[in-house]
Design a protein around this nucleic acid. Sequence first.
DNA 1: TCTTCAATTTACCGATTGGTCAACAACGTA
DNA 2: TACGTTGTTGACCAATCGGTAAATTGAAGA
Lengths: 199, 199
Amino acid sequence: MGTQGGRGEERREQILQAAFAVACREGIGGLTVRGIAAAAGVSHALVLFYFGSKDRLVLELLEWVLARTAVLRISEDVARFPHARDRLHALLQEEMVRLSHQPEHTRIFLEYWALGAHHAEIRTRIGAEMERYRTAFRAIMEELLRAEPAAFAGDTADGLAAVAVSWIHGCAVQAMIDPDHFDTDEYLAAVRGMIGRLG
Amino acid sequence: MGTQGGRGEERREQILQAAFAVACREGIGGLTVRGIAAAAGVSHALVLFYFGSKDRLVLELLEWVLARTAVLRISEDVARFPHARDRLHALLQEEMVRLSHQPEHTRIFLEYWALGAHHAEIRTRIGAEMERYRTAFRAIMEELLRAEPAAFAGDTADGLAAVAVSWIHGCAVQAMIDPDHFDTDEYLAAVRGMIGRLG
DNA sequence: TCTTCAATTTACCGATTGGTCAACAACGTA
DNA sequence: TACGTTGTTGACCAATCGGTAAATTGAAGA
């Protein structure tokens, strides 16, 4: 079998790349074993040989996207800022820039999210990724609450983290739904203004 | 034909309701002419008789959902508050409550949005709906800027409206992606705190 | 009662789907 | 050279898809 590591691993990667290309072009719902095989330049039987079934292939593609996408990942550059508030600003900005630079990854991520509504396995995986994301935000929020307790009196770290996460997601949704009306700089200025003038 | 008004209109409504039920159960991607027909208790040929093709049926379902969904609509109750800031608070809260009360509508709306990435007609329709939504928010934001120019110095009505819209959308996404970790009250408190402490 | 026309169904079509299977090619090894 | 393993393919299958057309029903009007 090509499942265990070795030569077959390159083929799996090649097929997953083709699957990603097809998903970008026609959406996850438009994924087809034959379509992926054609994009990879192999027969459709080979795709099933390596992934067993279409469902497993779709699941592995989700894993592939999650592993390779920079979106929703918190880098170390943010840690350089001494003040928690500056770190939050930098993080929000960084995420927005990432979003606008990897629109396909984000779009496919949200497509998987929609699929998760009717597919338990996908839902679980997406949920775990969201948990990780929110946790990272909560860490910063806790620090922010420690640094400026007066400014955020009454707020919890969980609540602030939820707001930040949904903020990013909403930004992603709107940026892709009508990019023409979405000005990243203006949006960021408004966010920065709201947070910056607290306290 | 059953297209023009009259007796056939009830059948169309009945079929659209069935289509909505199926879409809620299996997603828009899982919509099938035969599946819809079975849910409506008629033959699949009758569905095509009334809607011509599956594509047109899906388009009409989008219109149906948009017309019947309270989500993304601004009511008159909000207008009762004298201060612009209170109106904004009320509007955000109202939208969040609606979101949590009509999760299916919102989910299907976002599913259509994902479909719009690969379907021009759907994209146009969704874009128009977003435009209307953002415009309504911008009106409130302009009033807010007029009422408290000092508090929001440097912000534009468009920027603030974009933030508000993405806020709502992000909230919707997160509320559906893992409802367990999403506390509406806590979330709203954080938002209210951020806006309320401005200036 | 016969006609007429819209509403509705049954039967069918070609295309496409995910998946299986047997045959075949490549290639190091005995 | 013969073998056995692994990779790869083309042919095939049943199921399902959207869509069409003919046949059937039902009821109102002549």
